[in-house]
Amino acid sequence: MSRPLYRLAYLFAEGVRAVRTHLALAVMTGLTIAVTLLLLGLFGAVYHDLAGVAERIHDELGMVVFLTDDCAPAQRAALTAWLHHRPEVARMEETSKEEAAAAFASRHPESAQLLALLEENPLPASLEIHLDPAVTASAMTALVHEVEGFAGVDSVRYGKQWLATLLSLTRWLRGAGAAVGALLAVAALFIVSNQVAMSIYARREEIDIMRLIGATNRFIRAPFYLEGAITGLFGGVVAALLLSAAHALIGPLLAAGGGGLLVGSLDLISWRAGQVAVFAGAGALLGMVGCWASLGRFLKG
């Protein structure tokens, strides 16, 4: 074998040996990493989904201003002129009482006669306002309050009040996800670094002898990094498998129950080779960072 090849073979043998010498501990550490990645993955998926929903709704942002029947043309003109100058307003469609009635009739032909029976057209004139997609929920609420203050305005309907709630929920979720994720990652790092510390302790004699024989720091440290990486890799693959199992089990149930939101999430995390690779890579990275922290503390050069 050539030198580099031999070194690689040595490194791998030592890394595996290290994992094998305390297999139970390595498995526990790997599972902790798996749980961390699993929760992070779920958080990420749900967040991604809610943010997507909020985004889509945002695109359709709009409100309808219903005018009173006694709204004078001048009042109406003042309102439309004012709205035209508002930056939040993208475009506007005016509907008269008659147009509203016609629209109603064409949409509900079976009830058209009902409308004709009435002496007076009960449908109000309205302004349908399409907002600029960049408008925030709070800006929209402010605009609604201003419009409500105009003379001749009966009411303003913006069926998407819950959008504000959704938006703040996604913001909250992002914050909470980041906090919980950071906490979990720190916990996982702590546990990995603890495993490596035990491994260093178990091999301290060997390390002393290696130093005396003239092993470089890199040579001494490499197997520990490999141990961390193997453990993390294992955790990442377990997390990916659990997620795909969750998808297979819960997905159809949710679809049947109409849980549209979460089905989307689970789609995102379904079994795909690329995602397994991402999880495995994230696990290996966690393992190596944890190892690095431990080597810094317990294996000074």
Partner: peptide, 10 residues
């Protein structure tokens, strides 16, 4: 073990 350190194996 000592030979490994110097990169001699096999």
């Amino acid at each position: 073990f000592a030979l490994q350190v110097a990169g001699i194996g096999g």
